[in-house]
Design a protein around this nucleic acid. Sequence first.
DNA 1: AGAGGTGCC
Length: 653
Amino acid sequence: MPRDPDPPPAKRFKPGSPFSRLDKKKPGMLLPRAGHAPVNVDAQRKQLPIYQSRTQLINQIRQLHSAVFIGETGSGKTTQIPQYLYEAGIGRQGIIGITQPRRVAAISLAARVAEEKKVQLGKLVGYTVRFEDVTSSETKLKFMTDGMLLREAIGDPLLLRYTVVILDEAHERTVHTDVLFGVVKAAQRKRIEQNKIPLKVVVMSATMDVDLFSQYFNKSPVLYLEGRQHPIQIYYTKQPQSDYLQAALVSIFQIHQEAPASHDILVFMTGQEEIEALARTCRDISKHLPESCGPMTVVPLYASLPPAQQLRVFQPAPKVPAAPQTLTPHAEPVLALTCCLCFTGVQEGGSLHKHRRNLHHYLRHQIRDRHGDGESQTLQSRCNLASVILQLLALGVPDVLNFDFMSKPSPESLRTAVEQLCILGAVDRKDDHVSLTPLGKKMACFPLEPRFSKTLLISPDFSCAEEVLTIISLLSVDSVLYNPPARRDDVLAVRRKFISSEGDHMTLLNIYRAFKKVSGNKDWCRENFVNSRNMGLVLEVRAQLRDICIKMNMKLESSLSDLTNVRRCLAHGLFMNAAELQPDGSYVALDTHQPVAIHPSSVLFQAKPACVVFNELLHTSRCYMRDLCLVDAEWLQEAAPEYFRRKLRATKS
DNA sequence: AGAGGTGCC
């Protein structure tokens, strides 16, 4: 069928259009353009629209405890406001902390601001993300991930090192950022009550729906940051596009042909798979373009790329960065294509499923950005509330059930979370009062889900802490198993030598041990279809967890060849995630009695183990158990006799 | 007999 997408916006270049306005040579905005003539960063800073309102902004913030800023991407708010505050002497007694939802953003923003301040990164300007702390005693402007500040708050609930906390990208909310908001708000209130140096809170959002933020921070004023570096003009296609990937592709090459070579194109897509496919197609096509077109560099950008590759979008080149919806690089493209999806004309059965999934993905972001109601449900579904509750208790929040959440989780989900922590022995509950047990206190020290920190903490009782450290680290990162579909048979053949009939945990452990034997050899990884980057992360996570264990004086022993103890330990830690084989060959989860199935990726997929614990449940076409470990039913009983007695009663009644 | 989302500590 001939495809006839609407003429894309590039067709409409004409004098006075936003594109022709961009023809005026403007230096790159937020990031250095290495390779070009040296640019004057001071001059660049002064060109930012936000610079005009600098004095006014400073005067307003000086008088406020809290403020909410709305400024679109490109207004320069994230790089400039921290500097304005610092330059105006606001918060000089302490640190100005700027939180970001993502690591790459925290790192690249810090690098840019250090460049603007002409200082070495890690001195006046630094950043802190997991595994990387590029700060020093001199650091006054500190970019960090939200998660890092939340961790810091456990040791310092009043955030006394900070005089200003800037919560950036506030529109990208999760349960964790909601908790962070609550922690920051409480710290601010308590510091006033205790006559300590006040904490200024600045919330920055790219979207207009900031009423909730303003309300939450004591009806703080909302300040609008006018303008952006580059004007925006939105064009729509006249008709729905049956194949938005194809339409994007056509648009990309029309723009590439017509726009000046210095301009970049940014395409928003729904995920890694689409991004890689589009990048491949673009590269293929660009090889066969006439020379008059100029070269095209295609730079994919998504989270699972190595950070160095993610930063490539900031290098100057004619290029097409392809980014998922949630990742906005801090470069100003000449044109951003946001691809909306629709069902019209989607015919093939296989791709219908895919489109539906993508649409779902897309809508979720739309809904989350625009709609206040139902939001808390979306937020909850994305993360384990039990770990949030544990964290709150560790932060010293006295009444967790009535914590000042910006969007309150349902009482039922809160109850379930507390119940889970109770069963794990992390909390005690008397009437409505919930408190941390000594075990729970230790559990909160690990950057892990409660059931994993519990498993790790009891591992010395089974003399297998080293193995459990390894297994939990392996489960904490994206899979170390590399499964290119095109080489499926090779993968199966190579992996056979690691497979354990005791399940996925033991199989992963075998792979890790083999990897260590060859000292992390990259060729070995390639030959054995092991993702060496993720394996590298495993080593980092493991080292971090091990440090925490050592600080707690845990006895770190290895069970060596006998892995029964390891499985017993997993049974004792993961007993809430257990399932039993039924006479008809199906499985039932012992906790909820719901039917579950073994995920096809499990090494036990074709086996029929009588009793297993699993890592997580995946609700897709069915309810799948992922990462299974064979256990004895008796181990579960000895792990939590009371819990299983109750479960048994529930079954009978 | 058969899967597929993200980010963070």
